[in-house]
């Protein structure tokens, strides 16, 4: 039986603004299936986004949703989760949002290890503003602000997350949605800060300028260049040139921040004053 997405969508907000062939919709559906699989209650789930194409997701999903400022959804998420650890907190951010203007928040969220899931929609470009290059635009690519070809080195967001101390890091593509569903579910289940980098194609602003004739050619590119982590381990560096690894790239069990915090507060025997969190 076909999956009924409508019960998780604000159907009156459709159609969405994403362009035909955009990978964001594929990634959003995967997110919905993962939430459904885990049975998260809508009222106890907060989805937070920043600015850009990915940022619009908070308007479409029928949960408690917060559409924040550019690059900073993780900061709001940090406040929400600390103030009410019972909430499921999910952040969706784009490559520009997360790795450029929000880069500092990203690495510190990784380091802190609060139980939040960050889903990055990495489409290699600033789509909403019309196709400027982002920190993940591959070197040699073209965009409206690299009309003569991009000479900037490219950020590897998963490696950055691992280096910054994230306790769960996975990368998948919108080509392989079965694998994507699996890692999103695993990320949600992980107790700590989890990052899923989803490679999403932008056929209009990235694709057209870089020789991808259609949305399908971008998916095909993902198929050819995604190497499963297990396989990559037995490959030579020159064989991996220009490719990216997928799967759960990193996972470790470390005490989660809000648990550590509330263990600390509980160590004070009596509450000094009548101050207590308003949790209703």
């Amino acid at each position: 039986m076909a999956f009924d997405y409508s019960k998780y969508l604000r159907n009156d907000k459709m159609p969405h603004i994403w362009c035909p062939g955009c990978g964001n919709g594929i990634a959003m559906k995967s997110l919905i299936r993962a939430i459904d699989a885990l049975g998260y209650k809508k009222e106890e789930t907060v989805i937070i986004s920043g600015i850009g194409c990915s940022g619009r997701i908070s308007g479409y999903l029928d949960f408690n949703t917060l559409h924040t400022t550019h690059g900073r959804p993780l900061t709001f998420a940090t406040g929400i989760k600390l103030a009410n650890p019972k909430l499921n907190v999910i952040v969706v951010s784009g490559d520009g949002d997360c790795a450029a203007i929000g880069g500092n928040h990203f690495i510190h969220a990784c380091r802190r290890n609060i139980d939040i899931t960050l889903i990055i929609f990495n489409n290699y470009i600033y789509g909403m503003t019309g196709g400027q290059h982002s920190p993940t635009t591959p070197s040699g690519s073209y965009s409206t602000t690299t009309p003569h070809r991009n000479i900037d080195p490219q950020f590897d967001l998963s490696k950055l997350a691992i280096g910054a101390g994230a306790t769960f890091v996975a990368r998948e593509t919108t080509y392989n949605i079965f694998a994507l569903d699996k890692v999103v579910i695993e990320a949600f289940k992980h107790k700590g800060f989890s990052v899923v980098e989803v490679m999403v194609g932008c056929p209009i602003y990235y694709g057209r300028k870089n020789g991808f004739k259609s949305a399908f050619s971008l998916l095909d590119w993902q198929r050819k260049n995604a190497i499963r982590m297990e396989r990559a381990q037995s490959m030579k560096p020159e064989e991996l040139e220009g490719k990216f690894t997928t799967g759960i790239l990193h996972r470790r069990e470390v005490p989660e921040y809000t648990q550590l915090y509330y263990t600390l507060t509980e160590s004070f025997e009596k509450s000094v004053d009548k101050v207590s969190m308003e949790r209703e």
Binding site: I48, L66, T68, T69, R72, L74, T75, F76, A77, T78, G79, I80, K81, L82, A83, N84, L87, N104, H105, H108, M277, E278, R279, E280
Partner: peptide, 17 residues
């Protein structure tokens, strides 16, 4: 900037921040 974001997030979750 992050501090102010966290304050707003916490307030939305019911805290006096």
């Amino acid at each position: 900037i992050a501090s102010m974001g966290a304050v707003i997030g916490a307030s939305l979750a019911g805290a006096k921040a």
